[in-house]
């Protein structure tokens, strides 16, 4: 077991490709490859609390699903706490906690207390340990009055606190939070954030957090990892994030027919292909004009469009707010 030394979560060239079959005629279907996650690498040390952000469809959930062992990667390597999540899912899940903001992991018709009882038996948590963890969560998340209420009767904020508790009863080393504050009122949000800070400080739990609410990140994380179109666009201090705005632009190229990825255009690289359509990334500082003329000379172009880095929206919102 080597999770003490080196990186606690270690992601290298992680790739997930889906084959999407689309109807293109009455009976014809064409299969296209979609690179949901396209060769991303990053690492977390034990006890870090990191924000994982990007626009919708950037590949965040797919990455989280690979980190938790739900999905098998197409390519690349992945270690969490010294374990390969995909190969040893059942061993890994005892050491991680997962909270999905939009769906509960609790049993809808059972009172919270019964849900926690099931969690205790599923994870084989010693009773003393369980009681201690539950007591701490109940106190910090103010769940005392809610333990005997069926989950379906809880408000969104109450349910989220209930879900976070359920994910922590077995002392996980890592906590994945997927949109933990989505739809919560201001008070619940603040309570959840305070709790996460305390958890990370006192128990040293490693936390990876995806969110659309950038104030979550500002309150909780020093470091952010940003992905867009399945690729890593930024990994560093929150304060340095604005530089991403000057990152890469994308040229969306429609060719006459399906061709192998475009090559040999200086300063640009193909990041995605879908049938005859290809996406070329190039530095935002460079001009698009020479690129386009070179492309037109070498390839059978049908149409072109320029896309500013989508992540800019995210950052713009962050600094506006």
């Amino acid at each position: 077991m080597s999770d003490g030394d080196g990186e606690f979560i270690d992601v290298r060239e992680l790739t997930k490709t889906f084959t999407v079959r689309r109807k293109t005629g009455l009976l014809r279907r064409t299969a296209t490859q979609v690179h949901a996650v396209d060769g991303i690498s990053f690492a977390l040390r034990r006890g870090e609390m990191v924000g994982f952000i990007g626009p919708n469809g950037a590949g965040k959930s797919t990455t989280i699903k690979m980190l938790t062992g739900i999905l098998t990667p197409t390519d690349g390597s992945l270690r969490v706490a010294g374990v390969d999540p995909w190969q040893e899912r059942t061993r890994l899940v005892r050491r991680i906690g997962v909270v999905f903001g939009q769906r509960t992991t609790l049993w809808w018709d059972l009172p919270l207390r019964d849900s926690y009882g099931l969690v205790r038996r599923m994870y084989r948590i010693p009773r003393a340990r369980f009681e201690e963890n539950l007591a701490r969560c109940v106190e910090l998340l103010e769940l005392g009055d809610l333990l005997d209420v069926p989950v379906r009767q809880l408000s969104l904020g109450q349910r989220m606190r209930g879900d976070i508790t359920a994910a922590l009863l077995h002392d996980p080393d890592v906590l994945y939070l997927d949109e933990p504050t989505i739809g919560l009122d201001v008070v619940s949000k603040a309570r959840v954030r305070r709790f996460l800070v305390a958890l990370n400080a006192e128990l040293g739990t490693t936390v990876l957090l995806t969110t659309h609410d950038l104030s979550d990140i500002e309150h909780l994380c020093k470091r952010v990892v940003v992905i867009d179109h399945g690729r890593l666009v930024y990994d560093g201090l929150l304060s340095g994030l604005h530089e991403v705005g000057r990152g890469e632009r994308t040229l969306v190229v429609d060719l006459e027919r399906e061709l192998p990825p475009i090559e040999g255009i200086p300063g640009a690289r193909t990041v995605r292909t879908e049938g005859p359509r290809q996406w070329l990334a190039f530095p935002a500082s460079a001009s698009a004009a020479p690129l386009v003329s070179q492309l037109a000379a070498d390839y059978p172009l049908v149409d072109l469009s320029l896309r500013e880095p989508a992540i800019e929206d995210v950052i713009a919102r962050m600094y506006a707010g």
Binding site: K65, T68, G69, I70, R89, T90, V93, R94, I96, V98, F100, Q102, R103, T104, T105, M122, Y123
Partner: peptide
């Protein structure tokens, strides 16, 4: 369809 299959996969059972 409703995504709860993923929840089952995050449990050690």
């Amino acid at each position: 369809r409703d995504g709860t299959m993923d929840v089952l996969l995050t449990r050690p059972v």
